[in-house]
Structures are given as structure tokens and as C-alpha cells.
Design a protein around this nucleic acid. Sequence first.
DNA 1: CGCCAGGCAACGG
DNA 2: CCGTTGCCTGGC
Length: 310
Amino acid sequence: MTRTEDASCYLKSLNSLNPEITVNSGQMFLWENYKNSWYGVYKSHILKFSLDHKNSSKGTYDHLYFDSLPELDNWQQLVFRLDDDVNYISSCLTNDNMISQLFKKYSGLWLMRQDPFQCMISFACSSNTNIPMIRRMLKNLCRKFGIKREIDEKKFFTFPTTKSLAKASINELCSCGIGYRAKTIKSLTEKIIIGTLNIEELSRSKYDEAKEKLLGIYGIGNKLADCILLFSLEKTEAFPIDVWIARSIYSYYRALLNQESFKLDIKSTKLSPNKYNLLSKIMRQHFGKYAGYAQQYLYYHMRCSANKKW
DNA sequence: CGCCAGGCAACGG
DNA sequence: CCGTTGCCTGGC
């Protein structure tokens, strides 16, 4: 176990992070908060960061500590996307008045980078259910197929490896309460093991090409594919549309929609693949290369407005 | 009990 | 193309 004391070279950007908002924005299923520390499962590692001496007038932190078990050198660079040029990204998006406001309102909401395999399994579990259920399913999978680790006298289980899930039977997977999603996890892990699905290749590929590959997997449709692309495969232009984002489009972005291309029914947030592609294209054209960032803020805003308790 | 929840595939017009 | 239906599961 190593400890990075007050990583001053990152402090400038990291101290504006709001972990509560970020973790609760629905993308980080296996992160938990105890006192002033946050713990997260990342592949076979347990990551930890602690915040001290919050400056309440500025809303910033004086000290940040990073840990990992086993050691994962400089994980904060990777996971918090410190390579992103936040000023540039914001300049790309703040021509949009709505996003400009949301950037201010929810400052500290960050896009995080997930491990691709973990991200695929996580969103495979997300279909037709809610966040507490997704958490439960993933924890069950970790308990059954991961490795126990202890940190600060708290017990965690690491995320299962591709191999360990590939070896599992459908029944064993189902015992984790994932139901019909077991089939998706099975086809996903099999394709990775035999090499039909190559994560490195997906990362290198352009958005359209990578998405096409993901859509070839049983159980992965438009929405799940876009989540995987945005959160783990470097496709910041991906703009996942779930019911909440669909509502936000109908509420705030009607002007962008072409009336003749499809008749909009405000109540109908269910999208056919065709409608999804059309909407997704319109939004990606509107927001550009960092559309996924805009999506994240819109999503969080819609959920907050609806008083969702995560 | 029926209905719903951050989707998807299969099937019939 | 469209719309409908069933699906694991747990909470209300």
C-alpha cells in the first residue's frame, strides 16, 4: 500500500471535484463513502481517496490523499481524467446556454474513466432496472467471483476478471440476482476470451466503428453501447439517451428537432432504434466532440429535478 | 395482487 | 419501418 501525500501537482484541478455529485451521477456504481473517504472497486484494485480541511467559503479541499490496494500507480490521473483540458472542453460546450448554466450549478461534477470490462458488465446489468438494483447485482458478482480485500478494516471484493466470469455457468451468474442479463454477460465474456471483441481495438477505433462492434453483442443495444463508449472507451462524443435524457431533450432541445422527421410524443420516452439514432445524431452534431460531458450534466440535472434518491 | 424501474430482442403487421 | 410483448428482480 502506498500513499500519495497531498499530490500538489494535481491539487489545482482535483480540489474542485465534488465527489458526492460525481459518484452519485449514476456512472460509478461501486463507490462508497465513509466519513471523509471514498472507496471504489476498480478491476482487481480497491481505490481510496480522502478529503481534508474543506474550505467552506471556497468549497475547495486543502488536502487530498490517494490510496490503492494493491498499488495502482497514479490511478487518479487515469480515473479522474486529469488529462482532459477542462477549459477547452467547457469552451466547446458553453455556447449552449443550458449547459453553461448547469456547469455553474453543478460545478464539481466530473466525468470519470472506468475500466472497459467492468463498465461493460456494469451496464449489461443496468437494463430495465434502477441504480440500487444495479449496485446489488454488481456487489453480488464481486462477492461470488472477486477477491476479498481489507482496507481500513473494511471488507471489499474486487471486480471479477474476464476469465472468472467466462468460466461461470449461467446458473452461477443468475444466483447473483441478475436474471436474464446473465445471457448478455455470457456472450460478452466469451467474445472477449476468443478475441472477437478486442478492448484495445475498441479504444483505438472511431466512434461509429466501435459502436457497431458493441451492437453485435447479444443484449447490448444503443443505450448500453453509448454508455460503454463514453465511460470507458474514450468516446467523449457518445451521447447515451435513456428516459431521463429523452425527457431533457423534449424539455430543452425541442428547437433542434426536425418536426417532419418524427412526431414527438412528450410522454413517449421509449425510443425505437431509428429514433434513438436520429436523436443521438442531432445531439452529437449540436454538442460536438464532448457531447458526453453535456449528457452527464443533463442527466444529473433531470434526476435532481425529479428528486431522485439515487 | 398489479405495476414499475436508467433496455433489449423477437415477432407480427 | 412501426408497435407490442416478455423478461429477472425487488419495492411499493
